[in-house]
């Protein structure tokens, strides 16, 4: 390729790529600048409440669930926090699937987590699939002195001393399932929905994670385009330099 052709080619692609990634460069530069001064600007203390952002982050729009255990209400804010009446007692991954008192302990079933709490509300233990808790647990109940778990493959008797899960045929007529909490609890749970801090938003905009895996791919592509941009810029500069040198001779 002649110097002239090389110059035309690199300038043409430099323009195209420059135009294609202008918006991303702008986003990367602005968010990068802000992130460099995150502590001075105290971005982490600026909280943003937005339903659009909550959707982008996949944060569950507050759909709290609650279950009455005896005279007390156990509720989950739809995100992480578990409450017994008004008190935060533990954290577990939504949704709340069931709860029951058994052997003097409060057993709470969440997504792939079985929490055991003392009567005082103190967390005794969390049993996860890494300790053998079956996947796809759907509900929990106590029947005939047995702690039963409903799974996609049938009902299991949970022996939490030995961590054995035996299939059983006796199933409760009705599995207690969490419901929308009563109004006074619902208001309290909605008020405690977590906000997104500006630092997190800047980080996720910078990396593209705000738009999920696709966003990351786009930002990766923008980064690759920036590399190509620097190459085409260099080639264009070098070609024009050589052409000028040649024409002087």
């Amino acid at each position: 390729m002649s110097l002239r052709n090389s110059l035309i080619f690199s300038v043409r692609w430099h323009r195209r790529i420059g135009l294609a990634c202008a918006l991303f460069v702008l986003i990367l530069s602005v968010t990068g600048l802000l992130l460099n001064h995150t502590s001075n600007l105290k971005l982490d203390s600026i909280k943003i409440h937005s339903s659009i952002l909550a959707n982008l982050y996949g944060l569950p729009s507050p759909e709290p669930l609650a279950l009455q255990i005896g005279e007390q209400w156990l509720s989950h804010d739809g995100s992480k926090q578990l409450y017994l009446q008004d008190n935060v007692i533990a954290q577990c991954t939504a949704p709340l699937l069931g709860a029951a008192r058994y052997n003097g302990l409060l057993h709470i079933l969440c997504q792939d987590e079985l929490l055991l709490l003392m009567t005082t509300g103190e967390l005794l233990e969390t049993i996860t699939p890494s300790l053998g808790l079956p996947f796809d647990t759907q509900a929990l109940a106590v029947l005939d002195g047995q702690l039963l778990l409903k799974t996609a493959n049938g009902t299991l008797n949970a022996d939490l001393d030995t961590l054995q899960w035996q299939p059983v045929t006796n199933t409760p007529a009705h599995w207690p399932s969490p419901q929308t909490p009563p109004t006074h609890l619902n208001q309290q749970l909605n008020a405690q929905t977590p906000a997104i801090d500006l630092e997190q938003l800047m980080l996720d905009l910078h990396s593209g994670r705000l738009f999920g895996g696709f966003g990351v791919l786009v930002m990766d592509l923008a980064a690759v385009l920036l590399i190509v941009l620097s190459i085409t810029g260099f080639v264009a500069w070098n070609s024009s330099r050589l052409i000028r040198k040649k024409s002087k001779r």
Binding site: A90, L123, L124, E125, S130, L163
Partner: peptide, 20 residues
């Protein structure tokens, strides 16, 4: 650290622990 008890498995002088 959350929780009041931790499970482990033991045989003679060997023990196995699983953490997340």
């Amino acid at each position: 650290y959350q929780g009041l008890r931790i499970r482990y498995w033991q045989q003679d002088n060997r023990s196995a622990w699983i953490f997340e």
